[in-house]
Computed example of a mutant assay.
Amino acid sequence: MRSYIIIFSLLLLLPACDRLTWLPSEQTQEAATPRKKDGLVVNKRKDGSLYSEINYKDGIKHGLAKSYSKSGKIQNEIIYEQGYKNGVSKIYYDNGEVRRSTTYKLDRKNGPLMSYFTNGNLSSSVTYKDDMPGNDLKEYVKSGKELSTYPELKYQVVDRLMQTGEYTVKFYFTKDNNRAEFYIGELIDGKYFDRSTLEQMPEVNAQGVLTFKPGPGQFAMKKIPVIGKVKTKRGNYLIRNLVFNLAIEG
């Protein structure tokens, strides 16, 4: 009779233990320490088509990574080193030709960035340093010949010192000026554009404008470094710079 009483008492205590969850020891261990990816990992879409092939080392992307279209054609090719893009990465057209190749170092663009036409000929090229575009943009026609002309950075002086006491300088590009920006400052190493080091110019009618109002008898003479950045019709950024020699007297 005593054993029946003990069993009945234990059954009454079971609802109080509903916060306990019993799992097989293997399942508990797997949840606590998920396995790190190592080596080649192949990913597929729901329809079974190949989506990507990525190399890992200790759970971090390391080596060649590729992605594919649903038809099985390669779309992207990226080289990683310890999780960072390092080396030449490529984007492809559907016909297998390279659309764009970019050189990276520690996830930043460092080196040439080149775009191509579907026939394999070069469309444009520009050099980067630590994600900063250089002033050496070149664009080509589909036959492979370089463009003969590019937008030029120019300025116009409006001297109204005698009338209003103002001296204005307007900066502009000879083409594509509606997609231009203008700055005061220097290019890094005389070549690379770094927005964080520059002062953007006020703009009026898509022109960079500097206005000076010297007081009576005041004389101003200085060199002003000016940078213009314009987006071409192909979506590339052309960078040009000049020095404006200011010499005015109020």
Rank of each mutant, 00 (worst) to 15 (best):
V209M: 06
T232H: 04
E203K: 14
F193S: 05
I184Q: 12
N236T: 10
I188S: 07
F182K: 00
K222R: 07
R240E: 15
P216Q: 13
V230N: 02
L210M: 15
A206G: 07
E199L: 05
Q218V: 14
N205I: 12
Q200I: 03
K231V: 12
V243R: 08
N177H: 06
I224C: 02
F219M: 13
P202K: 14
L242R: 02
Q207A: 08
K233P: 05
A247T: 15
N245G: 11
L238P: 00
L198V: 00
V204C: 09
F173Y: 00
N178K: 08
T197P: 03
Y192Q: 07
I188K: 10
D189N: 13
F193A: 04
Q200R: 08
G215R: 13
K191C: 03
Y192F: 14
L187M: 03
I184R: 04
G228N: 04
G190F: 08
F212K: 11
P225H: 10
S196K: 15
Q218A: 13
E203Y: 07
S196W: 10
N178F: 07
N177G: 00
I224A: 01
D194R: 08
D189P: 09
A247V: 11
K175I: 00
S196E: 12
D194P: 06
G185S: 00
K223S: 12
V230Q: 02
V230A: 03
T174K: 01
L210D: 08
F244N: 07
F219I: 14
F244Y: 15
A220M: 11
L210P: 02
M201N: 06
V226I: 15
R234F: 06
G208V: 07
E181D: 08
R234E: 07
